[in-house]
Design a protein around this nucleic acid. Structure first.
Lengths: 184, 184
DNA sequence: TTGATTACCTACTTACCAGTCAGTACCTTT
DNA sequence: AAAGGTACTGACTGGTAAGTAGGTAATCAA
């Protein structure tokens, strides 16, 4: 029993990550929900307001994710993180980071700042998780934890994009390559 | 002294990779060129025709690139490949692969096939170049050449996207991480 | 009970977008 | 000199996009 506003946010996020920001309209939201365009504008006056809500939605989701896996072992945390991307790939979507990066120059400063903060949070979590695993000897690092974090993040979010073009086998190969690299 | 058609293609490619396919219009091409919208439609009747021309433009560029570095040593080839992405990053653009992946569901089958072929060509070139370097002992592989190729490709094209959000330092770190990984 | 607030709908405006078509100036070929 | 192709322009259309003004029914708080 989620509110209309929440439903709009979820649907907008789905559209954003399957068609792209400039490829969906208020009608793509109002029609399947059985409401009018004006109702969407009531909750999100402008499209940038909608985009900002999508970023906040992902920020909150990520916070809940890190909370949920907090007590787990570092390598297990990384595996959960990668599995999250597997579900993105299976549903034919791409990662928010890639979606916003493509449309970056169409976004206002407020959205860009929110996305920067969110992305920094993801990188910081990955970095500290890798350090954690390195200390407990379940993860092997051959470069700085931050460099490895950046490498893993770009691998997995680009894998969701690449697999759209060349097929899901490549997603699986990239995911496996990451795990091989950090466990040797 | 390049033809109007070529100029349109180059400009469309720039727009596609800085704003995204659905964020630019025929006016964004005709206005700065000092011609009319109808002139652009004369050369490229529909927008998908333009998108196809962009893919072909990159296919041809890549063929010329592989030709140009053909006689070089494998590791040197990889470095030239990575430096190409540095120039993409410096001009604030993103890689075609990422740009088309985001707008994938807005593309028709013909464009998708052309992009698939192009991307496969890039992956195959990377794979055989890595194998070549491994044979001549200038490149170290810790996984199959194809897996490493996929990893490098996703790293570098996503780096152009990520650096839009978090800054160019991350691009440099990812690029360095790739080189460290394959030379140890 | 009244007055404000919430969550919409109806109906509209403005603006732009892709795409078309008739016409034209200028070559080139026959 | 006539005919045909190339590379456009001018003027337009139909459609859709984001966004808004004004109204209404239901709920809630004083």
């Amino acid at each position: 029993m989620s509110s209309t506003k929440d439903q709009i946010t979820v649907l907008a996020d789905e559209l954003m990550r399957s068609k792209g920001y400039n490829a969906f309209s208020y009608s793509d939201i109002s029609k399947p929900m059985g409401i009018k365009n004006a109702a969407v504008h009531y909750h999100f006056p402008t499209k940038p307001d909608l985009a900002l809500a999508i970023v906040k939605y992902h920020s909150d989701s990520f916070d809940r994710f890190t909370e949920r896996v907090n007590e787990k072992e570092a390598l297990s945390k990384i595996k959960f993180f990668l599995n999250f991307y597997t579900s993105i790939q299976l549903t034919g979507r791409i990662c928010v980071i890639g979606a916003f990066a493509t449309d970056w120059n169409a976004m206002n400063e407020e959205i860009q700042e929110a996305m920067s903060t969110f992305t920094d949070n993801v990188i910081n979590w990955l970095t500290s998780t890798l350090n954690e695993g390195n200390s407990s000897r379940t993860i092997e690092l051959s470069d700085s934890a931050e460099s490895e974090a950046l490498s893993i993040l770009t691998n997995i979010f680009a894998a969701t994009q690449l697999s759209r073009i060349t097929g899901s086998d490549h997603f699986a190969a990239i995911k496996q390559n990451i795990l091989t690299r950090i466990t040797q």
